[in-house]
Design a protein around this nucleic acid. Structure first.
Lengths: 144, 144
DNA sequence: CAAGCAAGTTGTACTGTGCAACCAGAGCGG
DNA sequence: CCGCTCTGGTTGCACAGTACAACTTGCTTG
């Protein structure tokens, strides 16, 4: 196997390990906000006023899944739905003040954890690692 | 924000994006072998003769979870367990021929997807990216 | 208007997971 | 040798996240 193939192999394996751990630790770190909820809230913050269907399409989730997630977030008072006056089938979703608050809080704590973990990395490596990840994710294949 | 802080921010965000996508796409890609099973099988192939406890530690999974996964893999005939003659509490796990077969098959398809995605990366970058990921995962913090 | 399409909800089922309780074997101090 | 404790593993239970299918409601179009 060439060096490149070995590297691809390693990237594949380590990404998978990471994904597993991320899911495991996300719950422990922020019991108040699951990884899904966190992601959805983040998405709504960035591009407010989305519909559930948009979220489902964007994350390749079933509409029923999104429906339940959204219902839970609303029950928790983190988002609100209002009927689109143009089309009464549609519900437009937006963060509430509380939602923004929690999201900011979780973002802070996540950020702190990452920063701690990466504390002893030389800046040069951090910058390069970040660039690689961005480049990787910019791809659109399903290799995920 | 310093360059290092920006990089940490990016790493956090991109890792999260990756985690979400991985989970979404894994099931669709190989219905015959769940992501967990695949990961465990791969681990066993690389470093045969592991114990369930080792797997649990490595993937930050509860021992009960690993126990069930292992039981399922054994039922499917992909791994076999034998009692450690030295210590009768311990079960040493190993792939069966069928297990190696399936694993190779899934690995081929995963590898193809990754390789396609990473096709236009220079070898030097692949190697460095792989090294960063390994280093990141070698850390033991709960940051995911 | 009737037929069909689109947005969401609900019923059902399955997977992956953790925690707690438990069992069995090993090891140690008296 | 006996009990205590530790370790590896299993099982009962609960729960989150997910998909699929059936359904409701509202819009759109022939």
């Amino acid at each position: 196997m060439s060096a490149a193939e070995t590297a691809v192999e390693t990237i594949q394996r380590e990404m998978t390990v990471f994904a597993r751990r991320a899911r495991a630790s996300a719950g422990r770190m922020h019991p108040e906000l699951s990884l899904v909820s966190y992601t959805l809230l983040g998405h709504l913050e960035e591009s407010g006023g989305r519909r559930a269907t948009d979220l489902a399409a964007h994350y390749a989730l079933d509409k029923s899944t999104v429906s339940r997630q959204v219902a839970a977030l609303e029950r928790s008072g983190l988002i609100e739905r209002r009927l689109d006056p143009e089309d009464h089938r549609v519900q437009v979703l937006d963060l509430t003040a509380a939602g923004r608050e929690i999201l900011a809080q979780v973002t802070r704590s996540r950020r702190a954890a990452f920063r701690e973990r990466l504390a002893d990395w030389p800046e040069e490596d951090l910058v390069r690692f970040a660039a690689y990840l961005e480049r990787y994710n910019a791809g659109r294949t399903a290799a995920g």
